[in-house]
Amino acid sequence: MALNTEIAFLSKIPLFEGFSEEMLRLLAFGSERRTIEQNRYLFHEGTAADCAFVIASGRFELTRKDRKGKPRVVGEAMAGDLLGELAIISATERKLTALALENSETLRISRPMFRRMMEEYPQIATLLRRRINANLATMLHSINALSPQFDNDNNKS
């Protein structure tokens, strides 16, 4: 993928909306392109995460272990999806396993590179804070919408 194509592609990723072309250019230039062959793992649940992956092409099956330790399919990721975005901001571990369902291409965004971007462009931190606040508000709204169901169950006991 040419640099200008990568910039246009990254601009469509929700986490990077509002980034200037200069920021996106730095992000594209600092990203590492990786080819993942079909039936190969991108990462495993429980391993340390030091980067995020943007899927440029292909598809990944996402699994999580159930209480008995057996992998359970929880979704599928495809071109345009960002996996492990929390890892570019803070130390964490993978919550899922990602297996390539076909030959796939990813852009690896490392935490050190993203932190350097935030140092150079402090407005990135402001954009991220707004997105995190919006995501938390949405999550709290969803939880509040579910709470009457639990209140009714408790009243029946």
Rank of each mutant, 00 (worst) to 15 (best):
N39Y: 00
A125T: 13
S142E: 13
V74Q: 05
L15A: 11
L42T: 06
Q38C: 09
E21I: 01
N152E: 11
N4C: 01
V54Y: 06
F114G: 07
T126N: 09
N152K: 12
L99I: 15
R129H: 00
R72T: 02
K95I: 12
L101N: 07
N154K: 05
Y121D: 05
L82F: 10
T92S: 14
L107D: 04
R33C: 01
G30M: 10
S20E: 04
H44N: 09
L136I: 12
M117I: 05
R130G: 01
Q123V: 12
L86D: 08
A48N: 03
F114N: 07
S142Q: 15
A48P: 01
S104K: 03
K65P: 00
F150M: 09
G18V: 11
D153Y: 13
M78T: 01
S104L: 07
L128G: 02
F114M: 08
F29M: 11
A49L: 13
L86K: 06
A91L: 09
N103C: 02
E76T: 08
R25D: 08
G80D: 02
E17C: 04
N154R: 05
L86C: 08
R64N: 03
K70A: 06
A56K: 15
A52W: 07
T5L: 01
A125D: 04
L99T: 15
D50R: 10
D66E: 03
T97Y: 10
T126L: 15
L96D: 00
L15V: 04
I132F: 13
R131V: 01
I89N: 00
C51N: 11
L24G: 04
G84V: 13
Y41A: 11
A48R: 11
L42N: 06
M1L: 15
R59M: 07
A100I: 14
R116G: 06
Q38S: 12
G58W: 08
K95H: 07
Q149K: 14
S90D: 12
Q149P: 00
E102W: 12
D50K: 08
M118Q: 11
L10S: 04
A77N: 07
K12A: 10
A49N: 10
L86A: 14
Q38G: 04
P122M: 11
F43T: 04
L3F: 02
R59A: 07
T92V: 15
R33P: 10
I7K: 12
N155D: 06
K95T: 14
Q38K: 15
D81I: 02
T35D: 14
D66V: 03
G58H: 04
A87V: 05
S110R: 07
P122S: 11
I55N: 02
S20V: 04
A8N: 08
V74W: 02
R72V: 06
E32H: 04
I13G: 02
R131S: 01
T35V: 13
L146R: 08
S31G: 14
A98R: 10
T47N: 15
Q38E: 14
L42G: 05
N144Q: 11
E32A: 00
P148C: 06
A137H: 11
H44V: 02
L107W: 12
I143T: 10
R115Q: 08
E37S: 14
F29R: 13
F19P: 01
A134H: 10
H44A: 02
P71N: 05
E102F: 14
T47L: 15
I89S: 04
T126Q: 14
M23N: 03
R111H: 00
P112H: 14
D50E: 09
A52G: 13
